[in-house]
């Protein structure tokens, strides 16, 4: 298959180059849980990993209403202007993640655990799968 006895550069060198180019262009397939939300409103700029909210983990413990009615989370990935200041003040995630109901904000890396440059998304959502393939650094 690989014939390097030709008088010129063997076929596998440009082959390797073509492969690398396609690899760099094509994003690696991600297979995280349905409903995992990546929030990268400010993380990348702040030099933190994007935060990942596992919907499934929270569904086991709370009904939708608690966060989406009582705490005021909008039904939109990236649509809530969440900052660490607000969280420390007890808003959004901070309503539970205060060391009282759930572990507190000192555990930075438990939330900020995403691969750098992962765009804000609801992972595996219809929108993401059918209409808008995830692009790195895509702005909402």
């Amino acid at each position: 298959m690989i014939n390097s006895r030709k008088g010129r550069c063997p076929g596998w060198i440009p082959g390797l180059a073509v492969m690398l180019v396609i690899l760099l262009l094509g994003p690696a397939p991600a297979t995280a849980e349905y409903g995992d939300v990546v929030i990268n409103n400010y993380s990348d700029q702040a030099g933190m990993r994007p935060a990942i909210f596992p919907h499934w983990f929270h569904r086991i413990r709370f009904r939708c209403k608690v966060c989406h009615a009582d705490l005021g989370f909008q039904f939109k990935a990236g649509g809530n202007d969440i900052t660490m200041l607000k969280i420390i003040d007890g808003e959004f995630c901070g309503a539970c993640h205060n060391g009282d109901i759930a572990w507190s904000v000192e555990n930075c890396n438990l939330c900020h655990s995403g691969k750098p440059n992962t765009s804000t998304q609801v992972h595996q959502s219809t929108l993401q799968k059918l209409l808008a393939p995830a692009k790195p650094k895509a702005k909402e």
């Binding site: 397939p29 995280a32 849980e33 990993r49 990942i52 890396n109 939330c111 900020h112 655990s113 691969k115």
Partner: peptide
């Protein structure tokens, strides 16, 4: 899973 950073120490705890 492709979105968590495997090099992050917190990822292992999840």
């Amino acid at each position: 899973d492709g979105i968590h950073d495997a090099e992050n120490d917190g990822t292992e705890v999840l």
